[in-house]
Computed example of a mutant assay.
Amino acid sequence: MSRSIQMPCTVEVEHSDESLHAHVALDGDPVIRPGDEVQVHGEPIHVAFGERRTFRRMATLRRASFLERAWTRTCAGFFEMNELYEVSFTPRRTL
Rank of each mutant, 00 (worst) to 15 (best):
Q6E: 15
F78V: 08
M58Y: 07
V40Y: 08
E43H: 06
E14Y: 01
E86L: 10
E43Q: 13
C75D: 02
T60N: 09
T94Y: 13
C75V: 15
R57M: 04
W71V: 12
L95A: 13
N82T: 13
S2V: 11
R33Q: 14
S4C: 13
P34Q: 02
A25C: 00
M58W: 14
P30M: 02
T10M: 02
H21G: 01
R57H: 15
T54P: 00
E43P: 02
V11W: 06
E12P: 00
V40W: 10
E86D: 04
V13R: 12
I45G: 09
R62P: 02
I45S: 11
S16E: 10
F66D: 15
C9D: 09
L84W: 00
A25R: 05
D17S: 12
R73N: 13
A48W: 05
R62C: 07
M1T: 13
A76S: 13
P44E: 09
E14F: 00
P44W: 07
V40R: 09
L26N: 04
L61S: 06
C75L: 14
M58L: 15
S88W: 00
A22S: 15
P44N: 07
I45Y: 07
R73C: 13
V40K: 08
A64C: 04
C9V: 14
M58K: 12
L26F: 06
Q39S: 15
S88H: 05
G50R: 08
R3N: 14
V38F: 09
C9T: 10
Q39W: 12
P44H: 06
E68C: 03
V11N: 11
